[in-house]
Amino acid sequence: MPRSRLTLLLLIPTLALLGAFLLLPYLNMVVMSFRTPSTSAVFAPGFTTANYLNALLDPDFYYLEILWDTMVLGFWTTLVSLILGFPLAYHLARTQSRLKTLLYFFILSPLLVGVVIRCYGWMIILGPHNGLINTTLKQLNLIENSLPLMFNTFGVSVGLIHVFLPFMILPLLGSIQAVDPALEEASQSLGASRLRTMIKVIVPLSLPGIQAGSILVFVLTISSFVIPILLGSYKVMIMPTLVVQQIMDAMLWPFGAALAFILSITGGFVIYIYLKLTSRLVPSSQ
């Protein structure tokens, strides 16, 4: 059998899996988002664009505001993950330490704990009444009223950044490792400080990793559900919580599907703009 055919054969299980459990449900949801809503059934007969129009043209901008909040949360989570992750990735890429494996383990550790347990852990730390931080600060008489650390965007962001940091660090690590350390030395020998070297040489050359990590964290954030629910309750409303609310609680399947697609398309558009902008920073030599 020719090699290409064999390769195709090996791809079949994966393609079948993706087709049956990703593509078909997705298509089903596209269709669903154009169906007529009904109060007595999942949907009524006939098709309509009303679901999209209702979401986009809501006079109070309720849905668009939630969409905006979702993107802002995605932006901040990604930015903070990048700022926290880059030094870590750089250190891990360059270290000669024998503890390197241990460092790897620490970086992956958030992924080794289930999401619910991890969130309850954060609740113990961030909780407004019995939380570790608030009780400690109160007992030291540093504050009188509890700091709002949870059930708000801050608490949600902490939980998101904690678990998504590995998704930022791993792609960064790969691309920083690919940057020849001699380039840093060349930069220094030409009179650049370590910080200038970082900005002018290492960051531009590790751009593919920055892009990959950013996209991963952004996509994971704007589609996150469990962490915003547990650490934000329903006080932090973002698109995934809204979608689930519409589908599961209000049983408005067509409307929920439309909201989900508005989120997908907006997310895709933001990523496209991001790639366009960042790719311009580094002239390609190809």
Partner: peptide
């Protein structure tokens, strides 16, 4: 630190900045 020593150094693998042109490398 190296950047304060006013040295010119040529490396075995040249260590040219791959994301800069010849001019960019020289201007650095």
């Amino acid at each position: 630190p190296p950047e304060k020593r006013d040295l010119g150094m040529v490396f075995q693998n040249y260590a040219l900045f791959p994301h800069m042109t010849v001019s960019g490398n020289l201007a650095y």
